[in-house]
Design a protein around this nucleic acid. Structure first.
Length: 562
RNA sequence: AAACCUGUGAUGUAAUGGUUAGCAUACAAGACUUUGACUCUUGUUGUAUAGGUUCAAAUCCUGUCAGGUUUACCA
C-alpha cells in the first residue's frame, strides 16, 4: 500500500489544488446526472466511476440526478433501469434528485434575470434565429425582439408559463453577446414551450428549461463542488459560468458554494458503438433482442452476458482519466472479466460440438463417480462427475493423424480425460460422407486421476474435457461474437454504422453439459474447462438450461492453428 | 485562413524541468501445466514536428502539422 506513489489524474489534481487553496473537504460533493432517455452503457460507467470513485476516495456524497428537462424523450422505465444499473455496479448515491424538482426555482430565477434585463422573450421562428446566429467566423445579429422592455418580457413569459401560447411561438433567451466567438453565448435559449406530459411533473408545466439553464443551476442547488462531464461540454463551460454567476448573486446566502465544471474524454470501445441514439436503433429494428441483449455494450447487456461489477470497475480504473480522444481495445475488457472469473468461477465440463467416444475395454454396464475440483484458485471444494463407457468429446479434439504439435487425441496417441483416465485412440467410424460418427479408444484402468498409482502420474501431453453420454444434460448455449466487424463502426463519414453489423454475432448451439449443472441458478457463472466462461441466462428454466458465453479462454492453439 | 481542446510504443495511461521514459493490455519467445487456461521468465515497438529557454525539456515558450469540439426550441 504505497499511497504516496499512486499518481493522481488531472481531476484529482484539481481537487487537491482546491483543497490546498482553502476548500473544505466537507464541501466536496459530486453527482452523476444521466438523462433518463435510454439505458446506461459501458461509456457511462466511466463517468459513474469517476464521480462515485471520487466520492469514495474523499468520503464525499454523490447524488444521482436525473436530468429530465425534455418530456418528449424521457420515461420512468429508464429511471428504473438506471438506478438498477448504478446499484448493480456497487455504488450508493446520497440523494436521488431530479432536475424537474427544480422547475419552480429555475422559473423564479429566470424572472429575476428578466427583471435585470438579462433575458428576453424572442418571438421568431427557430429558422430565423438560426440565421441570425452567425457562424464561428462571423458574428451574429441581434433579434428584433432583443430590446423588448422588462414589462413586456415579464408579461409574455408569464403567458408562456400559463399556456397561452402554442409550441414554437415564443422562447426565453439569455441576453449575452451575439458576437461572442463562443456560439453558445450568442443569446442561448433558456425556455421553450412544450405541451407534453412529463414523467414526473405531468401537465404542471408547458415551458421547459433547456439543458444549459438547468444543469449548472441544479449543480448549484445541490451544492455540487465539482461537476464532471465529458469533453463535448467544454464550450458550454462559459455559459455554465455565466448562468451560475448570475444566480449566485441572487442566492448566495442560501447557496454559498459555487460549483465548477471540468471535462474529461469519454470512453470509446473498439468494435462497438456508444451512442444512445444508435443503440436505440439496434433495439427498435430488432437487430438485438433488447437493451439487455448480451451483445449490447449496455450495463444490462454486460450483466446478462455474465460480466461482474468488479470486472467493469477494474476496467474503468485501468482505463484512467484524461482529455484525449481514445479507443480502448475491447481486449482489455475481456482480460478484466477473465481475470475475475478465473479467480472466482467454478470449473465444469461441457461439450459444445460433440462426437461420441467409446472406450472399448471399459465394462458395458460400469459407471463410476469421479471427483473433480471446483476451482484450483480457491478452496472451493469438489463435486462428483459420472463416468461411463460412452462419452462425448469435442469434435475438434480428435484427428485421425496428427503432427507432434497436436496435443489432442489421434489414432495411436494418448491423452488424459480430465479427472479420469488416460486413453489411447484406436479407430474411428465414419458415415457414407466420410464424417466421423464415433471414435473408439482403450483406457488404462490404472491411470485414474488422483489414485496415486505410477500410471496415474504418467505425463501425457494433452488433456480433454468430456461428458458421459448417458448422464449428459443437454443445454442451449448462446455463443456471441462482436456485434460489429469494424473497429470503429461509427467512425466512418461515408458509411453508416449499420453496414458493419456482424451477421454471425450470435450462434445458438445444442450442447451437452455435466449433470451437476441442472441445479445451476440464473446468473451463475462457470468456467467450461478449456472453452471459456459461461453464465446461466435469464431464459433458463429447470427443464431447459440456457448458457451465455461470456468470453472464451485465451486460446494460443487457435492462433498457432491458423 | 474562427475560437477552444488534445498529441508519449499497437492500445490505454504514468513520469508535475533532474537517473537507462514506468505500468497494464496486446503481440512474441520460453518455463510450468490433469484446462494449449492460469501463473512465472524474457523480449519488441514510444515523447507529432521545427526552433527556442535552461547546466538539464515528454514537461516551459513560439511556429508548423495532425486529430477533436462548437454553428439543436436534445442532453
Amino acid at each position: 500500500m504505497s499511497e504516496e506513489k499512486k499518481s493522481l489524474n488531472f481531476i484529482e489534481q484539481i481537487i487537491e489544488e482546491d483543497l490546498t487553496n482553502g476548500m473544505k473537504k466537507e464541501n466536496l460533493r459530486f453527482r452523476f446526472p444521466p438523462e433518463p432517455n435510454g439505458y446506461l452503457h459501458i461509456g457511462h460507467t466511466k463517468a459513474i466511476g469517476i464521480s462515485f470513485g471520487l466520492g469514495e476516495k474523499y468520503n464525499a456524497p454523490v447524488n444521482l440526478r436525473f436530468d429530465d428537462t425534455n418530456p418528449a424523450k424521457e420515461e420512468q422505465e429508464y429511471v428504473d433501469a438506471i438506478k438498477k444499473d448504478v446499484s448493480w455496479l456497487g455504488y450508493q448515491w446520497e440523494n436521488e434528485c431530479y432536475s424537474s424538482d427544480y422547475f419552480q426555482q429555475l422559473y423564479d430565477w429566470a424572472v429575476q434575470l428578466i427583471k435585470d434585463g438579462k433575458a428576453y422573450v424572442d418571438s421568431q421562428t427557430s429558422e430565423e434565429m438560426a440565421e441570425q446566429k452567425g457562424t464561428p467566423t462571423e458574428p451574429g445579429v441581434a433579434s428584433p425582439y432583443r430590446d423588448r422592455t422588462v414589462e413586456e418580457n415579464l408579461e409574455l413569459f408569464t403567458k408562456m408559463k400559463n399556456g397561452e401560447f402554442e409550441e414554437g411561438e415564443h422562447v426565453l433567451r439569455a441576453k449575452i453577446d451575439m458576437a461572442s466567438p463562443n456560439m453558445l453565448l450568442r443569446d442561448p435559449l433558456m425556455y421553450r414551450i412544450l405541451k407534453k406530459s412529463h414523467h414526473r411533473t405531468g401537465n404542471d408545466w408547458v415551458i421547459y428549461p433547456m439543458y444549459d439553464w438547468t444543469h449548472g443551476e441544479s449543480d448549484y442547488l445541490e451544492q455540487i463542488s465539482h461537476s464532471l462531464c465529458s469533453l463535448e461540454f467544454k464550450p458550454h463551460r462559459d455559459l455554465y459560468n455565466w448562468f451560475r454567476d448570475h444566480v449566485y448573486e441572487y442566492s448566495k446566502s442560501d447557496f454559498p458554494l459555487v460549483p465548477k465544471q471540468r471535462e474529461f474524454s469519454r470512453l470509446n470501445l473498439s468494435y462497438t458503438i456508444m451512442s444512445k441514439r444508435k443503440l436505440l436503433k439496434l433495439v427498435e429494428e430488432g437487430v438485438v433482442s433488447g437493451w439487455d441483449d448480451p451483445r449490447m455494450p449496455t450495463i444490462s447487456g454486460l450483466r446478462r452476458r455474465g460480466y461482474t461489477p468488479a470486472s467493469i470497475r477494474n476496467f474503468i480504473e485501468t482505463v484512467g482519466v484524461s482529455k484525449r480522444e481514445n479507443i480502448i481495445d475491447v481486449a482489455l475488457l475481456e482480460f478484466k472479466i477473465r481475470e475475475d472469473l478465473n479467480k472466482n468461477a467454478n470449473r465444469v465440463m461441457g461439450v459444445l460440438n460433440p462426437v461420441k467416444l467409446v472406450i472399448t475395454n471399459y465394462p458395458e454396464d460400469k459407471e463410476e463417480i469421479l471427483i473433480a475440483e471446483n476451482n484450483p484458485e480457491l478452496d472451493a471444494g469438489s463435486r462428483e462427475v459420472p463416468f461411463s463407457r460412452e462419452l462425448y468429446i469435442e469434435r475438434e479434439d480428435f484427428k485421425e493423424e496428427a503432427n507432434r504439435k497436436y496435443f489432442r487425441l489421434a489414432l495411436g496417441k494418448e491423452v488424459r480425460l480430465k479427472n479420469a483416465y488416460i486413453i489411447k485412440g484406436e479407430s474411428c467410424v465414419k458415415d457414407d460422407d466420410g464424417n466421423i460418427t464415433e471414435i473408439h479408444c482403450t483406457y488404462d484402468p490404472l491411470s485414474k486421476s488422483g489414485s496415486g498409482t505410477e500410471e496415474s502420474k504418467r505425463k501425457v501431453k494433452g488433456t480433454l474435457h468430456w461428458v458421459s453420454k448417458k448422464h449428459a444434460v443437454s443445454a442451449e448455449v448462446r455463443v456471441y461474437d462482436r456485434l460489429f466487424s469494424d473497429e470503429a463502426p461509427d467512425g466512418h463519414k461515408d458509411k453508416d454504422f449499420m453496414e458493419f453489423l456482424n451477421p454471425d454475432s450470435l450462434k445458438v448451439i445444442n450442447a451437452f453439459v455435466e449433470p451437476s449443472l441442472v441445479n445451476s441458478k440464473i446468473g451463475e457463472r462457470f468456467q467450461f474447462q478449456r472453452l471459456g466462461y459461461f453464465n446461466v441466462d435469464d431464459d433458463a428454466t429447470k427443464e431447459h438450461l440456457v448458457f451465455n458465453k461470456t468470453v472464451g479462454l485465451r486460446d494460443t492453439w487457435a492462433k498457432v492453428n491458423k
